[in-house]
Design a protein around this nucleic acid. Structure first.
Length: 369
DNA sequence: TAGACGTGGGC
DNA sequence: TGCCCAAGTCT
């Protein structure tokens, strides 16, 4: 141990070497990660990186495995109908990723002969690939000296260099500092090591500094402020939107679904038809005028609550038996609902509504999760 | 450029 | 329990 109280800041090559040594001993085994010394199939690197955008490792695992079994390479994925991809993606969220994933596969298959571009600039031209993913794929799949900067690396770097500027204003500086650390070789391992460090040691709350390979160099730790970084601008309050969903049941038991517009919220996914989602509550009378089919609508007691990133949704349910067969949408037998591409909020609606068969008393449960 | 865009898990 | 946040991208 040094007898000095304040060490000189280690230089980037030493920091990178220290982190890579740590990674060689502590690397996590993940389905999309190559064995030590091996280079991973770019398709798998790309697929995992898209799935991992704003999504936890634990959540992605089963989706990644299923996708790979069903579509083993980019040409197979490119040949799939978009609806199959959306269906396989259901529950993962941020459905634009699934649409872009499919579009990207088609571009790679048709315009690049089934091979991903092997540079950041080339990757950046593809749908759904932004600055982070281009750098990550270039480094991990092609061993390019690129510096992907995700939320983990922003946090690690903000602490290591004591960057007090709040996000997102600090992003340019954090990118510059992150790039300064990337070693000449093993850039992909370095990126994954830094992300592992952020995910397991340099965590947002209660970082395990005592276990950190960069504990001696970390300026935030020296100042005792690691847990407070990176600073963030205060978040805005989340509004509540309200709507009424129509659970229309045909004589043969089929229920009415429809497809949402191709872009925007839950784009391309199926839904239980509903009114607009707006700030003001809907009266039953007002809602009935917006019904997708003629029926005697009965309001269920309770509401379905769902929280999106930027608003909370409060959905009341109207149930109606109908003889109409011409409504715009798709009639689906209850046992066939599993074959539809349904976002989680609509699964909540279906669970709530189908628990209250037409003619039965209204449920008194307030559906929360 | 700031807001839109999902969901589930941890505390 | 409600808030935070997770390997971001697009417009």
């Amino acid at each position: 141990m040094s007898r000095t109280t304040q060490k000189a800041s280690p230089k980037p090559p030493a920091l990178a070497a220290t982190l890579l040594q740590w990674y060689d001993r502590h690397r996590r085994v993940l389905p999309w990660r190559a064995l030590p010394g091996k280079r991973m199939d770019p398709y798998r690197v790309w697929l995992s990186e898209i799935m991992l955008q704003q999504t936890t490792v634990a959540t992605v695992g089963p989706y990644f495995t299923r996708f790979l079994e069903r579509w083993p390479d980019v040409k197979a994925l490119a040949a799939a109908p978009l609806d199959d991809v959306l269906h396989a993606w259901q529950g993962l969220g941020y459905y634009a990723r699934a649409r872009n994933l499919h579009a990207c596969a088609r571009v790679v298959a048709t315009e690049h002969g089934g091979k991903f571009p092997d540079t950041e600039e080339g990757l950046l031209t593809l749908p759904g690939i932004g600055a982070y993913t281009a750098a990550a794929v270039a480094a991990i799949a092609f061993d390019r000296k690129a510096a992907p900067v995700d939320g983990n690396i922003e946090r690690v770097v903000a602490r290591l260099f004591l960057v007090r500027t709040p996000l997102p204003a600090a992003k340019p500086e954090l990118r510059r500092l992150a790039a300064s650390l990337v070693p000449e070789t093993r850039a992909g391992d370095f990126a994954q090591a830094a992300m592992d460090l952020g995910a397991t040691i340099c965590t947002p709350k209660k970082p395990k500094c005592v276990l950190c390979p960069w504990r001696e160099a970390c300026r935030a730790r020296q100042e005792g402020v690691a847990e407070t970084l990176p600073a963030r601008m205060p978040k805005k309050t989340k509004p509540t939107r309200r709507g009424v969903a129509f659970w229309a049941v045909r004589g043969d038991g089929a229920v009415l679904l429809r497809r949402r517009p191709e872009s925007g919220l839950l784009g391309g996914m199926m839904e239980v038809p509903s009114t607009e989602w707006r700030g003001e509550p809907w009266s039953d009378a007002e809602a009935r005028e917006a019904a997708p089919v003629a029926a005697r609508w009965r309001a269920l007691t309770g509401v379905v609550l769902h929280s999106f990133t930027h608003f909370d949704l409060e959905l009341r349910i109207l149930v109606g038996k109908t003889a109409a067969r011409t409504a715009t949408g798709k009639w689906v037998q209850p046992q066939a609902l599993g074959g539809e591409a349904l976002p989680t909020v609509m699964k909540k609606v279906i669970a709530f509504a189908s628990g209250a068969p037409v003619g039965a008393p209204s449920r008194k449960v307030r559906e929360e999760e």
